[in-house]
Design a protein around this nucleic acid. Structure first.
Length: 480
RNA sequence: GGUUCCGUCGUCUAGUGGUCUAGGACGUCUGGUUCUCAUCCAGAAAAUCGCGGGUUCGACUCCCGCCGGAAUCACCA
């Protein structure tokens, strides 16, 4: 397979949502699969939307998901610089070629005049084409004046790897702006120059660029450039309605999911499979499996709705997979920032133990904060919780006290404290007291945790330790 | 309005003329795993394949029309 040079070219506007990230995944997979390269290029030509620190956020997010770029900020490369704002002399050099060949012109028309033309067309229900208003004798260019492409109305045919064979008529070709009044290039122009200079073979971007493709094709022609492979990526749709996903829809940023404890593996897996599948029934993919299985022509050509529930399900799958395949310690290493405050004073080994009995209940790592508090702090005793429990309602308070006392003495006399010995003791208690598991186990579980749920009772007691278990049982016995 | 794209369970999707009385996954519901919650396992409900015409012995799959949805028409990317 021919080596693909792809690029991810975001604008540093400060917020990376699910959709932004996905458009980095496909170029990455394509490059990896063919043994090529992915270039990271920062498209910061819009000075008004530029946000300080946004570039770092992009870099950080890509690294977190494991989408390493081969050329670009931080790593450098032969086509430096990788910030468009630092490449202005390059764009001027290229635009000069067009000026010289008569394929571009300086436009002295004031913006207000252009708005007027546009309004006229709208009123007449006609498409607004600037080439119909082209100034007759454009002046020599000087700074402060925009430069426009001199288009030729013609039909175009091309192939899009996702959308298939495309055709448009001459009515879409227009005199697009190449260099803005402020001297910065437009996206429309800059990306053509950069892609050519950087040797990009696959131009992968959102479908919103599909309608302007003929103008890009015209530019390739004017420069005598070979067309790269064009790949339009469908949008991700918001959870409700039919609009593409944006911040307005409450779309969480990738950063937020990260701090909620979504694993990068799950994020990558979910996003790669949103609108793509390899035709098999496989759902869980590692990065390497994705690289192997990926193919552009299996990308869906309609928009896919974003479903957070499925992301969270997948995250749970990954949490369990890491635990099962790499062990408790490996999973623990991913949890450092997610424990309740009080956990800090407990040894690491203890936290690993807690994790290994609770991990299969986690949807996100941040669940740890709410689900494990009783392992680190004595719960507040609330006798009503016991008395009103559906299994304990029918048992009198004195009987409950008696059950607790029997449990305490049985556990006190245990020779060893481990999951098996505790289970044996619990079973013995069951037959001695002639109680149902629902009654005895509920009582002990509540007395020791006062939590809405906990792992299997013997495991919970084992991790809590004999001392804590007995202390809590005694405290409850006294309170009743 | 012009241009372009899209249309299979609620959602993500499989499906390239017969094997589809349409398969998988998420979600939902039911049952099982000594208590709870979850995991796991088993099972259920859920798609007149947008609609209407053709072509064909036969269409979700090919053709035409319609309807619906989306993108775009910036000195934003």
């Amino acid at each position: 397979m021919k080596k693909a040079i792809t690029r991810f070219a975001p604008s540093p506007t400060g917020y990376i949502h699910i959709g932004n990230l996905r458009s980095a995944i496909y170029p990455y997979l394509t490059a990896q699969q063919t043994g090529g390269k992915m270039i990271l290029r920062i498209e910061d030509t819009d000075r008004e939307r530029y946000v300080e620190g946004a570039t770092e956020l992009i870099e950080d997010t890509l690294k977190w998901v494991g989408l390493d770029w081969d050329e670009g900020p931080l790593v450098g490369g032969p086509s430096e610089p990788y910030f468009q704002s630092e490449r202005r002399d390059i764009y001027m050099k290229w635009v000069q070629k067009l000026l010289d060949s008569g394929r571009a012109y300086a436009d002295p028309t004031p913006p207000e005049k252009i708005d007027e033309y546009r309004r006229e067309c709208n009123a007449a229900k006609k498409p607004f084409l600037y080439r119909n208003y082209r100034p007759e004798n454009p002046p020599k260019w000087e700074p402060g004046m925009p430069i426009r492409f001199k288009s030729e109305p013609k039909s175009y045919d091309w192939h899009d790897e996702v959308m298939g064979d495309m055709h448009t008529g001459p009515e879409v070709c227009d005199d697009i702006i190449l260099i803005k009044r402020d001297g910065y290039p437009t996206y429309n122009f800059a990306h053509i120059v950069d892609d050519a200079e950087m040797g990009i073979t696959h131009v992968m971007r959102g479908v919103e660029y599909l309608p302007s493709t003929p103008n890009y094709l015209a530019l390739y022609e004017a420069f005598g450039l070979d067309r790269p492979l064009l790949v339009s990526l469908p949008h991700i749709l918001a959870p409700s309605g039919n609009k593409k996903l944006g911040k307005r829809d409450g779309a969480k940023s990738v950063t937020e999911y990260r701090s909620d404890g979504v694993l990068p593996e799950a994020m990558l897996n979910y996003l790669a499979c949103l609108g793509w599948n390899d035709g098999t029934e496989k759902e869980i993919y590692t990065k390497d499996e994705l690289i192997k299985a990926f193919s552009l022509d299996r990308i869906q050509n309609s928009g896919a709705r974003y479903d957070e529930t499925k992301l969270l399900w997948m995250n749970g799958q990954w949490i369990r997979r890491i635990f099962d395949e790499q062990g408790a310690r490996a999973l623990y290493d991913r949890t450092v920032n997610f424990w309740p405050e009080e956990a800090a004073s407990y040894p690491e080994d203890y936290r690993v133990k807690v994790l290994s009995i609770i991990y299969d209940r986690l949807k996100t790592m941040s669940d740890l904060r709410t689900m494990t508090t009783y392992f680190f702090t004595d719960p507040e005793i609330n006798v009503d919780t016991i008395i009103n429990n559906k299994f304990l309602k029918k048992i009198s308070e004195s009987e409950i006290e008696d059950l607790l006392k029997k449990t305490i003495s049985e556990l006190t006399n245990l020779k060893e404290w481990n999951e098996e010995s505790i289970q044996d003791a619990l079973n013995k208690l069951l037959s001695d007291t002639n109680r149902k598991p629902a009654e005895l186990f509920s009582l002990i579980r509540i007395a020791v945790s006062f939590a809405p749920f906990s792992p299997a009772l013997n495991l919970t007691l084992d991790v809590l330790g004999r001392e804590t278990t007995l202390a809590r049982l005694n405290a409850v016995a006294r309170a009743i």
